[in-house]
Design a protein around this nucleic acid. Sequence first.
DNA 1: TTGTATGCAAAAGGTTTGCAATGAT
DNA 2: ATCATTGCAAACCTTTTGCATACAA
Lengths: 157, 157
Amino acid sequence: MPLRRAKMPVRRPTTMEEFEARCRRQGLPVTSQRRAVLRALAAREDHPTADQLHEALRREHPDLSRTTVYRVLETLVRLGVVTKVSHPGAAVHYDAFTGRHHHLVCDVCGRLSDLVLPGFDALPLPDTRAQDFEIADYSVHFHGRCRSCRPRTSRNA
Amino acid sequence: MPLRRAKMPVRRPTTMEEFEARCRRQGLPVTSQRRAVLRALAAREDHPTADQLHEALRREHPDLSRTTVYRVLETLVRLGVVTKVSHPGAAVHYDAFTGRHHHLVCDVCGRLSDLVLPGFDALPLPDTRAQDFEIADYSVHFHGRCRSCRPRTSRNA
DNA sequence: TTGTATGCAAAAGGTTTGCAATGAT
DNA sequence: ATCATTGCAAACCTTTTGCATACAA
């Protein structure tokens, strides 16, 4: 039976204000399509693909083209208000929550979900001077098997 | 100038023996194609795609088809001797090193490299009973900008 | 007004699938 | 002998591109 977590930290997706401020700073026009895509993405807790987002937006914005959704998402990533979620295989998944958070990845079905874990938010950063790599952030990927992909006989090699 | 690390832990890719043992355990035939693909992958330190591996194998195995490389890699993942690497973007990348290690991901070019960091190898596992998720392992993804993608003027928004 | 974004359609990857022939056990 | 794998070609799905039009600043 599922346990309940006492203090569940909050997930705060990018706001429209942050988005517009960044557009202005970079001289990019704030279009209705960009607003719509960001709003739709920010409203979700999962990590939809461009196509899923396009599909979800069809009712409200029937004139929004698939191509534009792809392009807008790429722009939002460049603006830093959206991140791409690394997803082995399949399509690119996006997330409008740019705060520090971690991931649960199912090795079998590939499903990925967020995990806000304050205990993992202050890891010491490794010394990457040898690689000449400038670390901006990190996230911990826990992989294993999700509920639906775990057999009742719970052993594997 | 690059620093030198005193004790660099070793990267030990899957051996042919482990592979064959697992094949036998699961009743899968050990084919020359499977050997060839695993050997080629295990010999590399990067994380090639199926296509890159196929290209690399062309000289030695001109009769090995692209389709087979895709299928073999999927089989090796099922056998647990190879892992898919989370890679932002298009193609799936594979790794024959299944030991605990971490990643450096460039936000700009997407290049990904391994990072063996003993200091990060014993993190406490979070309680995922609520999600009913069985954690098998984890890896820390550090993202930021690699040498080639970092401008000399080292500030960003 | 000026430059960028959008929409369409077509192209370009990357990956999967159906089927007959081959190969491993 | 038996069943899974391989190779080929075609299908499929996701993403990108060229170009004329529409829109934000």
